[in-house]
Design a protein around this nucleic acid. Structure first.
Lengths: 317, 317
DNA sequence: TCCATTATACTCATATTGAGTATAAATGAG
DNA sequence: CTCATTTATACTCAATATGAGTATAATGGA
């Protein structure tokens, strides 16, 4: 049973008639501090910040921006729409025989971490929710904790085995960091995350480590992580996550934090050089060892934006 | 003034209070027939098919699928969510002092073209709406028709010049087919598409050739084109657009139709070979000249799905 | 002074791309 | 039946890009 199917199955109040549609904005605010990718959460890390769509908002984007800036007292740089979910079951308050349908529109925003005003608002390590996605120090978590359970789910199905191998980079398939969302959804389908059990999927044994979240917030966070990982490869958006000036190693650590992978130092620098995104400052970062030159992003970058894009074998006239 | 700003400015009925949110699904159905990329439209090509979100739909995806299949009597292969717009102005029926807000959730679907049952339903050449995006035979349309107007908008602003050059591949910048949406939005901002005038943007002179659409359907179509062009480069989705078996040249023509670019024949084939997506059939396509071997997509492809993904300079342990 | 530590510069074999040329297998005109 | 025309495939080769290192340069502290 797929993620969608499971959600459906638990639905009850389906009847045609007068319906109030309730729309909600959900924000995934990401920052990278040191080598830790973090997300802004509510309720002790168990929910993403969300607010109702108000008629005063001129556009969805503007709605999120206003809302987040009020929460964090910090201007929000990059914003991007993630996905819209409309689940008839979730938040279905059947009051007075009138079903309420909820639409959730989620956004990804990039900032730098600052002390948040709110009380229950806190920044959490993203890998708290997806320990298996962080392969920087130990790429074997999956193997050690849950491979046996996955084997049980696979059984003798060649198709299931192929899916698991492609998603988790097992048995010869390469690991692809962009597949974070597919992996979460597959784990849900296998009943190995707690949300699956909560939503009525029975499961025979263990869960994979990782903190559960309210409703499908963890899925939304996985969507954000996937999107962000894919995007850093062809758009210079790390830019929104870095301070004014930084060393090349700091930039590398930031990308590594998001990708969940160690990168090859000199090749990473060669790549940066070829993109012509950075310019030197006159300053050096002190610290242990030889001081590193500090760089900043080229101002012109703001205008260019789009950059390269992948290639097709184009014919010239 | 940006596209969003212009939309906002024309908004009036903004008041907080009881609000009914009306949600609508909009479908961009794409097929490629011969060398023409086509889209399913209503009303003589002036609107995209759209329908209300019904409570009986189990999920948005399912809603679109049901709706489209009822319209076209043909199973829909690939579906992907595009974007959600919530515009307070559009469709704002201020009846009885109650503002109605409309949310549009758009989807991209891929099929093969078949005779559509409906009367006003028809398939239209996508480039009818974006002639400048088709550079297969004549890449100079922009130059010839509208460069002067763009110059007028740019004036002496270096920032505007940089944006135009990056978007349209002028003055040394490379043309990037994925930027179809940015180009449409920029043309709107410049007042060079008719929608801009309709929405209250004054403009001094000419419009760029291209058929106008209802509401912001043309923008949604541009979103679909951008997404599709980006996606064919890293996911094997052309598959949904091709018949059971086909020659390599037919496949090339299909990709060219979507990309709006001619491709280099032998390099395209080398790429295909390296991806291992195809397998030979025993048949040949007759016609003038040497008959071409017919291929089909490998069945295993369905299971693998995700494929490669772009690369980071990864460090090995 | 010399060593641990981090920064930066080079090197080099291999793979991937861009851009063609050469050869093969059909059709139809004369 | 032969040859020009047309399309299909096979190769070639230089220019780049990538993966994986090694070598050398600056620091602060023992």
């Amino acid at each position: 049973m797929s993620y969608d199917n499971a959600k459906r199955a638990s639905g009850t109040a389906m009847k045609t008639g007068i319906q109030t549609i309730h729309a909600e904005l959900i924000a995934v605010l990401v920052a990278v501090t040191g080598s830790v990718p973090r997300v802004l959460t509510l309720a002790d890390g168990s929910a993403l910040p969300a607010g109702p769509l108000e008629l005063t908002h001129r556009s969805l984007q503007a709605g999120v921006r206003v809302w987040v800036e009020r929460q964090t007292h910090h201007p929000l740089g990059y914003i991007e729409q993630l996905y819209t979910f409309a689940d008839p079951t979730r938040g279905a308050t059947v009051s007075g025989d009138q079903a309420e349908r909820s639409i959730s529109i989620s956004y990804l925003g990039l900032t730098r971490e600052i002390a948040s005003g709110g009380d229950t608002v806190s920044w959490q390590d993203i890998y708290r929710y997806f320990p298996w996605e962080d392969r920087r120090s130990d790429p074997t978590l999956i193997e050690r904790t849950i491979r046996a359970e996955m084997g049980r789910w696979i059984g003798t199905s060649a198709e299931r085995a192929a899916r698991v191998n492609a998603c988790f980079g097992l048995d010869g398939s390469p690991w692809n960091e962009d597949l974070a969302l597919s992996r979460y959804e597959l784990l849900y389908e296998m009943g190995l995350v707690r949300e699956a059990a909560r939503d009525g999927q029975s499961n025979g044994g263990e869960f994979i480590p990782g903190t559960m979240m309210h409703a499908d917030h963890r899925r939304i966070l996985a969507t954000a992580l996937s999107r962000l990982r894919a995007k850093i490869k062809y758009r210079a958006i790390v830019y929104e996550l870095m301070p004014e000036s930084f060393s090349l190693l700091e930039l590398q650590r930031c990308v590594e934090a998001l990708a969940g992978q160690r990168l090859h130092k000199s090749n990473f620098r060669r790549l940066l050089a070829s993109q012509n995104l950075l310019e030197e400052t006159a300053h050096y970062a002190p610290g242990v060892g030889r001081p590193a030159k500090l760089f900043r992003f080229r101002a012109a970058l703001l205008a260019e934006r789009a950059i390269a894009g992948t290639r097709l074998p184009i014919a010239r006239p």
